[in-house]
Nucleic acid binder design. Structure first.
Lengths: 120, 120
DNA sequence: CTGTATCCATGATGATACTG
DNA sequence: CAGTATCATCATGGATACAG
């Protein structure tokens, strides 16, 4: 677990594989996107439909991130009109059971302070 | 996975156990704290020493959150001077192997765009 | 349809100073 | 030592408009 220097001079532990995954998954809608793709490959517009309140901007960013990290594969479909389809990678398939284990832990979390932030 | 209405009118999928865990772990220093406590129970100042660049404010918030969710137990030590010690809960112990699995996935993540944010 | 660019509101976090 | 309050800053994400 190394230390990197961020733009705003904040040192945080990173370059840690575990932190990497968690950071990736904690971004808005990331898990929802993975969940939807695990059911069926989807196109951009279909994901927008499945996630009614997501913005196109965030969906685009998230898909790029997940693709860059190897969790999602973008399949251009040359059939006019030009379209594309997003599919879970093999890595993501190995990943789903672990998410399932994590969910079990989630069920056991207590919830004494639902929104414990900033000494609320 | 339900939908809640947040203060700023943003609807996000939440009340999802998986999202809960991931959100908890993705907060700054959360994993580092858990990691350190998994080695040995620690007091506040010892954790500050282990995590040299953490601020007391964030350490305090994180410990409260982890305690409220049942991952960390705070043990007041009545021996003067008044002190306290933080220990991982039994739930956390069940949790560690899953974190280990997640780490393996992390190792397999590609890293084509290290800082893919905001169309950088 | 599939994105991308700009703008802005909010939340998270570090720095610092302070309390028992 | 063990926190807590206040403040400033930066990244995230939504809304909207725009492009191929």
């Amino acid at each position: 677990m190394g230390l990197i220097l961020r733009k705003n001079k904040i040192e945080r532990p990173t370059n840690c594989p575990l932190t990497d995954v968690v950071d990736l998954l904690s971004k808005a809608w990331a898990l929802a996107i993975i969940w939807n793709l695990s059911i069926l490959p989807r196109r951009f517009g279909e994901l927008r439909h499945d996630l009614p309140t997501i913005s196109a901007r965030v969906l685009s960013i998230r898909l790029h991130e997940l693709e860059a990290r190897g969790l999602v594969v973008r399949q251009p479909m040359q059939s006019p009109p030009p379209s594309s389809q997003y599919v879970l990678s093999a890595l993501s398939q190995d990943f789903l059971p672990i998410l399932n284990d994590l969910t079990k832990i989630g069920h056991r979390l207590t919830n004494m302070t639902p929104e414990y932030n900033e000494f609320s």
